[in-house]
Design a protein around this nucleic acid. Structure first.
Lengths: 152, 152
DNA sequence: ATTTAAGTTGCAAACGATTTGCAATTAAAC
DNA sequence: GTTTAATTGCAAATCGTTTGCAACTTAAAT
């Protein structure tokens, strides 16, 4: 039940390391995939599929291909899906070995995002699990507020 | 920045109290609305619009009317919207004065829901806000795990 | 280098949740 | 009762996401 042992060092992963992970799973390295990974590895924050699409050299690939790529990458544990509550999924690249579990602080005015190190206290989570007889408990947690720039 | 001063006593609200709140906002008490509130006040857990629709005596009202009612009730602060990450909004009636802020523990197998008293520690949240220069910080938090019944 | 089989892609169409336009209806005040 | 603003139902539109399918590559086998 390790939940918070991530070190969010924001260091870019090598593209070779990423394609290697794909190859190991007998996935093909295609133009679209390389392009998508290339975008992801340069961004420190979660991106929506549309945002990835917009960053991609136009014509690189179809939006649907991005949806399919993200589904697959998520299944392989190479990206983590985040939900900011606006009905649009966001994805962030996850380092090898890391489970990607962490949280964000989102500005409700301008939607800027800050990666957060803090996590829900394990001890309290454990207590909640036990009190209700649940096993394998995790959580989804995001913070919202007004950022310095938007505070006018 | 009070976030967790709720008492989740699960006690049903009087229908009269609910309609009173509507009246005060010069909202009309209609058949559909009374029926919807009637359902909500009997359920201790968040319901989707479809679930409310299903509980309603058939023909009571259109699904769209429920969507509109929930939008309005949310704006008046009479219901709170929750997001369990499955792309479907859920609503729970909120007591007068209460802001409805609380969390849930959801079974990933059978989707059963437990209301949770615990909240993210205010002190840590304050620290996060200050560290990043944000104001008016809150959070969205839900727990997921396998319930006793599903643990087989 | 050529073949081959599995994995991929684009495009159109399908989906599910939610919203919107609009004319017909109704609650509540006069 | 009349009047007026709020509300409803129904159809159609939106938005994010998924799926069907035929054409097309990648990577492994020959």
């Amino acid at each position: 039940m390790k939940t918070c042992a991530h070190k969010h060092t924001g260091k870019k992963q090598e593209l070779a390391s990423l394609t290697g992970r794909l190859r190991r799973e007998s996935r093909k390295i295609t133009g679209p995939r390389a392009a998508i990974l290339e975008i992801l590895r340069h961004y420190p924050h979660p991106l929506t599929n549309k945002e990835i699409f917009a960053e991609l050299p136009k014509g690189s690939c179809d939006l649907v291909t991005i949806y399919r790529a993200m589904q697959m990458l998520e299944k392989l544990g190479m990206v983590k899906r985040f939900d900011f509550g606006d009905g649009t999924a966001r994805f962030e690249l996850v380092g090898e070995g890391d489970d990607g579990h962490h949280h964000h602080l989102i500005c409700t005015r301008c939607a800027s995002v800050v990666e957060i190190e803090e996590c829900f206290p394990e001890e309290i989570e454990r207590r909640i699990a036990i009190a209700n007889g649940f096993t394998g408990v995790t959580h989804r947690l995001e913070f919202f507020g007004v950022c310095p720039d938007c505070r006018k």
